[in-house]
Structures are given as structure tokens and as C-alpha cells.
């Protein structure tokens, strides 16, 4: 058991586990964000709960950040090792003949998502941390006594360039998930009679969730 992360199979397994965790988080994030389309009050209450409940703040949030870092670092380690396994490249290489573009370019789609996370943290996470842990204001309220979350969200999606960047990042997220979802199951050894159905579900997940995030960004831009 000790050397499992030193093996190629073990690294795949660890990569898949972090992917499962991030895919579950994505559903939870989407479920709260979509509330903003239906009810500002419900979105505010859900956001305040997530932003102040100690289990989320001090247990889930650090695990999530570690999960993102681990997924990225392990992805880079695998990419470097894999590139080093073929020092002399083919003069002619026809990857499209046997594999999808998404499966061959996970490192690039992943890198775009990571850059997007930088913007997303700058927009939402860092201001939250500043208000809560530097200013010490855990109320979640504005000066007028209303919750700040919905207003903050709408304010961020006024700028058309920011909305465009968000939409572009979600397209890359979809490309990453189109391979990543089924790949994670294969890595943990799940390839059986349910695999075909799972692949279909994975494709639906990879399109619906990013499309939902795009819808939310556009909805708030035009409203």
C-alpha cells in the first residue's frame, strides 16, 4: 500500500478520486448558483449559509482547495512523465485517427480552467475572505441591511468581457469533462455492463453543467 502513489496505476487512481470530488463539488456549486435565477432571497440565504457554516468553511473548503491543487499538480506530474516517455517525436502523427481531441489535450483544457479559477477567486473568493476574515464582518449584510451576495453576483456580470471570459472557460470545462468523466471511472477500474450508460450520463453531465453556468452568467448580464 505504501508505494501506491509511486506507481502509474496508483497515480491514475489518485487523479480519478480527486476528479470525482471536484465533479461532485461542481454539482453543488451549480445547484446554489441556479437559485439566483429563481429567487434572490433564496440565493442570499443559501450563500450566507455556505459562507458562514463552520463545517463548510473550515472542513469542506480547505479540502476543496487541496483537491484542486492536488488535481492540478498530479496532472502536471503525469504530463511531464508522459512527455519524457517519448523523447523523439513522430514526424507524422495522426492522433485524430484513434482518439478524441479532448482526450489528448486534457492538460490544456485543465490549464485554461485553472486560469479561470484565478479570475473567479479574484472576483468572488478573495473579496469574501477579506470581508469575513480581515474586516471580521460575518453578517453578510450591506449598509442598507440587505444581504450582499446577490448584488455582488449581479455587479460582477455587468462587464461584457468578464461574461465572455466566464462563458469561454465553461466551454473548456465542458471539453475537459467530456473526457474526464468517463476516464475517472475507467481509472478506478469501473468498466462493465454499465459503462455505456455511464458514458452517456457523463456526456450529458459534461454539457449540461457548464451550459447551466453559461446560462446563469448570461442571465445576470442581461437582467
Amino acid at each position: 500500500m505504501s508505494g501506491i502513489l509511486n506507481s502509474s496505476v496508483g497515480r491514475k487512481f489518485a487523479m480519478a478520486l480527486s476528479a470525482f470530488f471536484l465533479m461532485i463539488f461542481l454539482v453543488q456549486h451549480f445547484a446554489i448558483n441556479i437559485l439566483s435565477v429563481f429567487s434572490a432571497d433564496t440565493f442570499n440565504e443559501a450563500s450566507h449559509f455556505m459562507g458562514t457554516f463552520w463545517v463548510v468553511q473550515y472542513i469542506f473548503q480547505p479540502i476543496l482547495i487541496l483537491g484542486v491543487i492536488f488535481h492540478f499538480v498530479m496532472g502536471m506530474v503525469l504530463e511531464i512523465r508522459n512527455r519524457n516517455a517519448r523523447k523523439i517525436a513522430y514526424v507524422k502523427y495522426n492522433g485524430n485517427a484513434n482518439s478524441t481531441w479532448m482526450s489528448r489535450n486534457m492538460i490544456y483544457t485543465g490549464a485554461v480552467i485553472l486560469l479561470f479559477l484565478g479570475l473567479h477567486f479574484y472576483d468572488f473568493w478573495f473579496p469574501e475572505i477579506e470581508v469575513k476574515f480581515i474586516d471580521g464582518d460575518m453578517s453578510g449584510l450591506l449598509a442598507n441591511g440587505e444581504y450582499r451576495y446577490f448584488e455582488h453576483l449581479q455587479h460582477k456580470f455587468v462587464d461584457v468581457w468578464r461574461v465572455a471570459l466566464y462563458c469561454l472557460a465553461f466551454v473548456f470545462l465542458a471539453l475537459h469533462l467530456l473526457h474526464g468523466f468517463s476516464s475517472a471511472f475507467q481509472s478506478v477500474g469501473a468498466n462493465n455492463k454499465y459503462t455505456r450508460g455511464l458514458r452517456g450520463f457523463g456526456k450529458a453531465y459534461a454539457i449540461i453543467i457548464p451550459l447551466g453556468f453559461i446560462f446563469i452568467a448570461l442571465y445576470h448580464h442581461f437582467n
Binding site: R11, K12, S103
Partner: peptide, 9 residues
């Protein structure tokens, strides 16, 4: 040898 990333090639 490199690590498998499930491209299926």
C-alpha cells in the same frame, strides 16, 4: 513507459 490517460488510442 508513460502513464495511461484513457485516450483509448
Amino acid at each position: 513507459f508513460g502513464n495511461c490517460t484513457n485516450t483509448g488510442a
